[in-house]
Design a protein around this nucleic acid. Structure first.
Length: 581
RNA sequence: GCGCCUGUAGCUCAGUUGGAUAGAGCACCCGCCUUCUAAGCGGACGGUCACUGGUUCGAAUCCAGUCAGGCGCGCCA
């Protein structure tokens, strides 16, 4: 049980005794340390309903509160009940955490299977900065869900089938340099893709040819299929290199093409069951009018008033769309993988699509907890959306390389003792970590303007700051003359810096489950920052190695627990920690 | 036209779902390396939470309206 749950349970007992009926209320971490460690506004809420004086009620509750050995409680302001945890209680808790592999984190997801759909780039196009959000947020959520006990299936639903392949095949037939493809394939793919885009803009007949190539491909034309296969393979190799560098792993890469042979049957089934019908030659899902107009994703208000806003699952020319593929994918994930939850980490502009998708899936009888985890857009300098098609975006690889280069410069400057491969390995960890943390420390819904300095900052609230605190801890243990067993150490907390460190260490298990309530890895980022700040203050204020034997042992144990918690927190954000930097 | 997202310190952003005197980092200013790594620590400065009303013990947070920016609304994904 976490400290917070312990307080809630004791408060519930006191409330029940005071009011004569079973009552519970929430306890939260205090907003400000001056008010103690935890607080509850139960008295104010309950007094309102009962029209009594909140402070008087709070006093009654406190009179019934049994906090022996754990905390003290008092009333403040309009009727808050503030809890101050006793240092001895923190000491006992931290000592127990050292012996707990889970660091106090409850396994709230046990027995549940979740499919997380993230990254999902289009093949034959390089990943640019716009892909970073889905990839990094999705990976972090996967790690967190796994640690909380969920069975996680990370699925990279790559865009390997669709309209763009008409253009790709055209470009292979007209522009491809085989030699360049053999030596360095990705830049060559980029080059020819840009050429065909430009050509199609100039000459509408090129676009027609592209469409014809697509129809041939979808009809199973052997030549086009061979081009398609080779293109996928080359692209996947290129993508894999980026994922390796980012330390992002998938359990499956089931792209759009995997669901091809299910689409025709799916459309037939929707027609038979009356969920979809023909309109202007296309097969569409319309509203079933079971919802109010304002909440209905298949209705939209335009100048003329409310009109249909259907999801098309088969074009007039017979082609299928991504709504079709996504429906087939939901069916597969539920039937084959027994998914209880499906989480899509996809930009917020697509939310209408997901509302329609989830609604249609429900009408089809596919039930589960489906969530669209949206995120804001990355904007260019003009505050406009970065365009996917223009090809002039900053590439993801370039960002990573620049990050590592900047980190290498700082290492050379700050710690010239580090040389060669060791320095390069640290630069990689620091640079990539900085990029990831810049993304994860922010609320996912916020749009932001891309900026090198912002994404690659190495000072202040950044990954290197966190990594540096770990390095400082390891440095203490390196200077230790004999091995230290933290599991048997006694912990005494006297200095304010020690107590504050313990306060945060105990909170790890409280913070982690809340992240999945609204899919906000930035809560974890905030937590590790606070923990690192607390450690740095402790490091300045409290000598470890030079302290007397009992204090030394207690502080070493605190350092050990801090090191593990920090490392685990960063691991869950997908960020590695070096031992030196 | 309708819908969704956003508007908080000079800049970049948090803000635990309605709580107490709104917080960090960057930048600027003042201190701290003969002691476990100064990528650090301590302090100062900095606010009409876009605006106007409303709801209540209490609002950056909820409701209504206004202004500004981004995005979406039938055969792309």
């Amino acid at each position: 049980m976490t400290l917070l749950q312990e307080l809630e349970s004791r408060l519930a007992a006191a409330l029940t005794a005071t009011l004569g009926e079973s009552t519970t209320a929430a306890v939260t971490a205090a907003a400000d340390l001056r008010f103690g460690d935890y607080q509850s506004n139960a008295a104010m809420v309950l007094a309102k309903a009962r029209k009594t004086n909140p402070r008087a009620l709070a006093q009654e509750i406190i009179d019934h509160l049994a906090l022996d050995g754990l905390a003290t409680a008092d009333i403040a302001g309009p009727g808050f009940i503030n809890f101050r945890i006793l240092p001895t209680a923190y000491a006992a808790r931290t000592a127990a955490l050292i012996r707990d592999e889970r660091l106090g984190v409850p396994a709230t997801g046990t027995g549940k299977t979740v499919v997380i759909d993230f990254s999902a780039p289009n093949v034959a196009k390089p990943m640019h900065v716009g892909h970073i959000r889905s990839t990094i947020i999705g990976d972090s959520l996967s790690r967190i869900a796994r640690f909380l006990g969920f069975t996680v299936i990370a699925d990279n639903h790559i865009g390997d089938w669709g309209t763009q392949f008409g253009m790709i095949i055209y470009s292979w037939n007209h522009f491809l340099d085989e030699a360049a493809l053999a030596t360095d394939p990705i830049p060559e793919l980029v080059r020819v893709y840009r050429l065909v885009n430009a050509a199609a803009k100039e000459d509408p007949s090129v676009l027609e040819t592209c469409k014809a190539e697509l129809v041939k491909l979808q009809a199973g034309d052997a030549t086009n299929l061979a081009i398609w296969k080779q293109c996928i393979e080359v692209s996947q190799n290129g993508l894999q290199k980026i994922y390796d560098r980012l330390d992002v792993k998938f359990d499956h890469w089931l792209g759009e093409s995997y669901y091809n042979d299910r689409l025709a049957g799916l459309v037939d089934e929707f027609l038979e069951r009356g969920i979809a019908r023909e309109s202007s030659g296309a097969i569409c899902i319309f509203s079933d009018h079971s919802k109010p107009l304002e909440e209905d994703p298949f209705m939209v208000h335009k100048e003329q008033g409310w009109t249909d806003n259907p999801a098309i699952i088969r074009k007039a020319d017979g082609g299928f769309l991504y709504a079709t593929t996504d429906l087939a994918t939901i069916q597969f994930r539920i039937d084959e993988w027994k998914a209880d939850h499906i989480w899509y980490v996809v930009g917020v502009p697509q939310q209408l699509h997901f509302r329609q998708l989830f609604d249609a899936a429900a009408r089809w009888g596919k039930t589960g907890d489906f969530k669209h985890i949206g995120f804001g857009s990355i904007l260019g300098d003009d505050r406009k959306l970065m365009k996917t098609r223009s090809g002039d975006n900053v590439g993801l690889i370039e960002v990573l390389e620049e990050a590592v280069e900047r980190a290498a410069k700082v290492i050379a400057d700050k710690n010239p003792d580090l040389q060669g491969e060791e320095a390069a390995a640290i630069a990689e960890i620091v640079g990539i970590g900085a990029v990831k943390f810049a993304e994860l420390s922010q609320n996912r819904l916020t749009d932001y303007v891309f900026s090198w300095d912002r994404m690659l900052a190495l000072q202040g609230d950044t990954a290197p700051y966190l990594q540096y605190s770990h390095v400082r801890i390891r440095s203490i243990f390196r200077k230790l003359d004999a091995p230290f067993d933290a599991t048997t150490a006694e912990i005494h907390l006297n200095e304010e810096a020690e107590i504050h460190l313990a306060r945060l260490l105990v909170r790890f298990g409280e913070v982690l489950p809340t992240i999945l309530e609204d899919f906000r890895p930035n809560l974890l980022a905030n937590f590790v920052l606070e923990l690192a700040r607390a450690f740095h203050s402790f490091f300045e204020a409290c000598p470890v190695l030079k302290a007397d034997e009992s204090t030394r042992s207690s502080r070493l144990a605190l350092c050990e627990l801090t090191s593990r918690t920090l490392k685990q927190g960063l691991y869950l954000l997908g960020i590695k920690v070096p031992d030196r930097m």
